[in-house]
Design a protein around this nucleic acid. Structure first.
Lengths: 323, 323
DNA sequence: TTGAAAGCGCTAACAC
DNA sequence: GTGTTAGCGCTTTCAA
């Protein structure tokens, strides 16, 4: 009997006796319905599956985003494919293709390609695409991001208010949209404060602890080293901390990082950061996907998840007085 | 023409002209093959999909495992579903069901159920199941684990060799197999060293930073507090560190943790740990799955990934001399 | 309340 | 080299 389908899906109009028989058989055979086979014919065409692309699944920011997405997805009976981007445009394309070939119902993406126009056909087909962490280019779709320029300005203002005038910027590669925004926020805040930006060290292209560490050491190998550092990324902040310790400068050089650092409150000094809210970002992104799936056809939304300054000590170190 | 299939899959015996025509059409229509539809009929029945269940995707240990699994899977063109267990047996069952309904080719599981016998039918069906971090119960299958008892003994021996005799154990809930193993390793090592275990504080059931912090504070609210602590889990270690600082005891109480702690080398004192190798565990587990899929039908293998002691300071603090 | 027939998008097997 | 036919496990539609 093909009434089996009715029983499995809990549809009405089946006699109790039939239900019992089918259930018994299912148990004996360890039957598990094949979701994908059903989806092939099902009216809504949903695979109850979602694709998530993050920086790397082993990075704490991404982990928090992932977890929040999973929690929302779980409530909808949706499973999530997770992949790591590694800031590699080819990997982005391959991951997205892999998701699409598996007919995910929605996409939550951190991207590194110059343009995501390649997603236009999929968007037209009705697949919800939500960008997280970084905003899309060459295409318009929902996005959930931190206000990077604003957060960077907040960090910078904090240092300026502490009396610093010799600041330095250390950040990630400018191909990354958030890196550009954070640098912009830093420079604009200096401008607003009337601090001349020429002569301010702006070191780009740092991607891991080691390059940040080396750059910091180089920075201090100059006649007039900065009294305060704004490090615009996670790993960069850690590299800076290592360097300052090596130089014995961690108690006389102020540091504010963008994005929180694990155990940042237990270090000495505590690490002052502009923290993002990765959980909030993940949740908002997943909710956006499900709203779209539920028929929300309003224009694309840009959701900004606030950042906040957490003072822990390193950002409150006053400028050195020099003779 | 249904020769399309041949072109898409790069099969031989198609003329160049036909290939070109098909490719052009595919491009125009933004065609993406439906992997699942194909799988329905394909001989090998592979979905090129894998299910991974970890403690929580936002925990650093799990993140590293996940990343390693992803890297191996990627080489095989396999996408991975990741879910969080939260040490909840119901969640385990639901996640596994969700994976099975999606016909994953293999399963990599951290479990918390008392018995995983419920997987027997799936195993008989030929789906490779590899247990990670914790060993299976009620069923036999491949497993990739750290040697928990051995690692705990290593940590304990290190403290004993430092001259400590008043040790304390702080660990996770004993429903968790690794927690039991680590406790066993600790107690057995004390026995081997001829240290009486009665009177040694063994605090179980700690699951997060806060409970570990409270337990540590309680420990010091006694006439003869320990001079050395073995904390048998990640978050427990962090809770202990917080408590020791609050008590001003972090420089006169030795501490060795099981499982590494982020930035453990930057704290003061540096955190001595018995580190696991989550990357190695993830890689080995994924390789096991693919070996099984490639036809390896040898008996189940238990792979032990070594732990290692990393001395950073906290574990080398000598016992207090008391008057 | 139940079942039979068709078809989802693809691949297998076998013609042509 | 290319096309045809059948069928994977399910849901849809419609008839009984």
């Amino acid at each position: 009997m093909k009434t089996v389908s009715r029983v499995i899906n809990g549809e009405p109009n089946v006699s109790a006796a039939t239900i019992a028989k089918v259930m018994a058989a299912a148990r004996t055979l360890d039957y598990q319905p094949d979701l994908h086979a059903g989806n092939l014919r099902r009216a809504d065409g949903r695979t109850r599956t979602l694709g998530l692309l993050v920086g790397s699944v082993d990075n704490p920011f991404a982990g928090a985003v992932h977890r929040a997405v999973e929690d929302v997805a779980l409530q909808h009976g949706v499973a999530v494919f997770a992949s790591s981007l590694d800031d590699d445009p080819d990997r982005e394309q391959e991951s997205v293709d892999a998701f699409l070939r598996r007919r995910v119902d929605g996409l939550i993406l951190t991207t590194v390609t110059e343009s995501q126009a390649y997603l236009a056909p999929e968007l037209r087909r009705g697949t919800p695409v939500v960008f997280v962490d970084r905003e899309p280019a060459g295409i318009t779709s929902d996005a959930v991001v931190s206000d990077n320029a604003d957060g960077a300005a907040l960090a910078t203002r904090h240092l300026l208010e502490g009396g610093h005038r010799r600041l330095a910027y250390l950040g990630d590669r400018p191909v990354i949209q958030t890196a550009r925004e954070r640098r912009r926020g830093f420079l604009e805040e200096l401008g607003r404060a009337g601090v001349a930006t020429r002569g301010v060290p702006v070191v780009d292209g740092l991607h891991d602890e080691e390059s940040a560490r080396a750059a910091t050491i180089a920075l201090f190998d100059s006649p007039n080293p900065p009294t305060a550092i704004f490090s615009a990324q996670n790993l960069v902040t850690i590299g800076v901390i290592r360097a300052l310790r090596e130089l014995g400068r961690h108690h006389d050089t102020a540091l504010v990082g963008f994005d929180d650092v694990p155990l940042g409150d237990l270090l000495d000094p505590g690490v002052t950061v502009v923290a993002q809210d990765p959980q909030g970002i993940g949740r908002a992104a997943a909710e956006r996907v499900f709203a779209r799936l539920d028929g929300d056809h309003s224009p694309p939304v840009r959701t900004i998840v606030p950042t906040r300054l957490i003072e822990r000590g390193s950002g409150e170190i006053p400028p050195r007085r020099e003779g």
